[in-house]
Amino acid sequence: MTHPQWQMVNSAIAKLTGALDRDKVPLLWQTLQQWQPETEQFEVSLQNVERIDSAGMVMLIHLIEHAKKRNCHIMLSFVPEELRTLIQLSNIEELMSQHIQISNGVNCG
């Protein structure tokens, strides 16, 4: 599974890069649907995400559900302020709080 915006660091960490918006998400999601997690805990770093809109947020929610069906818990690290705002505006802080890594100083609540 390869896509320029999804880079596997190892079996437990991947990085998303660039824009996660309505123009980029459909093709990226086609790739991510094929991903089969190999661990029970998986980190997705958003440190290199330049922009995210509601389509990107929804894609991340679907990715979390995709992994959950495969007995894998996703933690998002380096969550950008844009995404935190979208989560708050969408009133899904409670849903997402268990998937936001606090160790990098970013909290969703």
Rank of each mutant, 00 (worst) to 15 (best):
E50C: 07
A67K: 01
Q5D: 12
L46R: 10
L20N: 04
F42V: 11
L46Q: 10
C72E: 07
I13L: 10
H62Q: 08
K68E: 11
T39S: 13
E43D: 11
Q88D: 09
Q36H: 06
V58P: 00
Q34W: 05
A55M: 10
M57E: 05
E50P: 01
I102Q: 06
Q88G: 06
P4E: 15
G56M: 09
Q41R: 13
G109R: 12
I64C: 09
M8E: 15
M75L: 13
E50L: 07
D21K: 01
L60C: 03
I13W: 02
H73E: 09
V106M: 06
L28E: 02
M8P: 10
Q41Y: 09
V106F: 04
N91W: 05
L20F: 00
N91I: 09
Q34K: 13
V106E: 06
L63Y: 00
L83H: 02
I52C: 13
L76S: 05
L83V: 08
T2M: 13
N48I: 03
K24E: 10
F42W: 05
M1A: 15
L89T: 08
L16I: 03
R84W: 01
H73W: 02
N10Q: 11
E65D: 11
Q98D: 07
L86T: 04
M96W: 04
A19G: 00
M96Y: 02
Q47P: 01
W35I: 14
K68Y: 07
Q30K: 13
L95Y: 14
S97E: 10
S97D: 08
V25E: 04
V9W: 08
Q7S: 15
S54F: 05
S54G: 04
E94R: 09
G109A: 12
T2D: 15
E38K: 12
V79G: 02
Q5S: 14
P80C: 14
K15V: 02
E38Q: 14
A14E: 08
L32S: 05
T85N: 10
M96Q: 03
G18I: 06
K69E: 12
H3F: 14
C108W: 01
S97A: 13
L46H: 03
S97C: 11
R84D: 03
I52N: 08
S54E: 10
V25K: 02
E81G: 01
Q30M: 13
I74K: 05
K24W: 00
S45H: 08
E43W: 08
I87H: 02
R51E: 12
I87D: 06
L60I: 03
L76C: 09
V49A: 12
C108Y: 02
H73A: 08
L27R: 11
M75H: 04
W6D: 14
I52F: 00
W35L: 12
T39Y: 02
L89R: 08
I87S: 06
V25F: 02
L76H: 02
D21V: 05
V25I: 13
P26F: 07
Q88P: 00
E43G: 04
E94K: 12
D53N: 11
S97K: 12
